[in-house]
Design a protein around this nucleic acid. Structure first.
Lengths: 239, 239
DNA sequence: ATATGTTATTGTCACATTAACAATAAGAGA
DNA sequence: TCTCTTATTGTTAATGTGACAATAACATAT
């Protein structure tokens, strides 16, 4: 079983129930202190030993790929009912040493404070990294990450994706920081405010920030109905 | 070998060189008479016998997934150097009977008149179908097609994707018809014209249509430099 | 030759959106 | 009360959009 060894967090339960040439890699993102973070694991065995990589595992034979991804995210971060979408398949011949393994990458967005990190048998560390300051990762994981960041830029303009990264009540600045982190550029605060509010996506909680050394911002939550409609039909957010 | 049977066009050459649980399915599109068409094959063997499906095959062990897709498109349509992009992996447990097979879908855009259709050993017919009038397809191919059409709608607004479907010299109406076919709605001709021309993507050939029973339209070709820049950096085409 | 049908192309205008920046408001702490 | 900081509202020029009118050009019918 050691030839399968490197990707799994729970190697001991591997057996014929897993597809041994198709892995699922997860890009788990969160926002913390105004920065976009990605969760990485430091592996302890096999080709990946002592190196950082995405949160990967094998897909089960009787499990849809999405379900495999959701399971892995849950096992690692404890987060359920999350935003999760497929990035795509990565299948370069030499992406993995020795054997031909294809991976399907999924990305998910979680609330930083909700995540309770749990390592697997094959990893000895889990940590959040600033997405623009990641070390050299195993296999083609740097490529996958870059590809995902590109995809996020694309996505954030057409779906209210940002909201999966925030607590229930949040300020407009918190939301703006997500856009700035993903789009990699500063946005004008007054204009951002008007643009977002015009979508009718936010509901004013009639509450304000507390314990801040300046004028307290209003707290908002999002309108789930509008939120799901916008996710379905899309919108345009061109900056 | 019959348990592998249904997806390949060239069954006779199958062997250990192929990955037997990962297939590549191709959505090959073209424009013809103002309609968006997709190429389908009627299979003759296995589970898919006598049914239409996408142009599928297995990936070789020593072949990148993209290369596999390009190879299949070339074998089937004769077209090389085409636009080809990955749609994503489809891996529902029951998408294929009996065995667990995951497919990676690719879509490509070809010029209708350039395609010289060549069937495989496993198919007895190849035909272009209007994308909105396809029959029931094998496995999850209808789902894959729907997903791809959605993706195209999304894509056509941000990249000059339409140009891969046209001959070197074309009229603005031909281009507009592509947008209308993909976006599924009529566009205003004068506004479309101005919008496209403002991108500086088109070069006036200083030629005109011939043998048309009305005022002849100018012929344009696209500026490859601008074209590639726009593909890289994207644009916004919101209708 | 002229009229007719058809599509191409240019023009116009009310309206919405964007981007950039000025000005004011509100809270905490000195 | 003053100062610092961020929130929020206001303003405006420039640009883009959508809808439609008007004119131009070509082949064919008369």
């Amino acid at each position: 079983m050691s030839d399968r060894g490197v990707l799994h967090l729970e190697e001991e339960i591997l057996g014929d129930d897993y597809i041994d040439n198709i892995s699922v890699d997860n890009l788990i993102f969160s926002m913390h202190e105004g920065k976009l973070k990605v969760l990485l694991a430091k592996y302890t065995q096999g080709y990946a030993s002592n190196q950082w990589g995405l949160i990967g595992h094998w897909a089960r034979l009787d499990e849809n790929l999405n379900d495999a991804a959701a399971r892995i995210v849950k096992q690692t971060s404890g987060v359920e009912n999350l935003f999760l979408d497929q990035l795509g398949a990565f299948g370069q011949v030499n992406r993995y040493p020795e054997r031909r393994i294809i991976t399907v990458a999924f990305y998910s967005l979680v609330i930083y404070d909700d995540a309770k990190l749990v390592g697997g048998k094959n990893t000895n560390e889990l940590a959040w990294f600033d997405v623009f300051e990641v070390p050299n990762l195993i296999f083609d994981h740097n490529v996958i990450l870059s590809s995902c960041l590109e995809h996020l830029k694309y996505k954030v303009r057409h779906e209210p994706i940002g909201f999966n990264l925030l607590p229930e009540k949040f300020t407009l600045l918190q939301l703006q920081e997500i856009y700035e982190a993903i789009l990699q550029k500063p946005l004008d605060k007054p204009n951002f405010r008007r643009k977002i509010l015009k979508m009718n996506l936010l509901i004013d909680c009639k509450e304000r920030q507390k314990n801040v050394a300046h004028r307290a911002a209003s707290l908002y939550r999002f309108d789930l109905d509008v939120y799901h409609k916008l996710r379905e039909f899309g919108f345009s957010f061109e900056y």
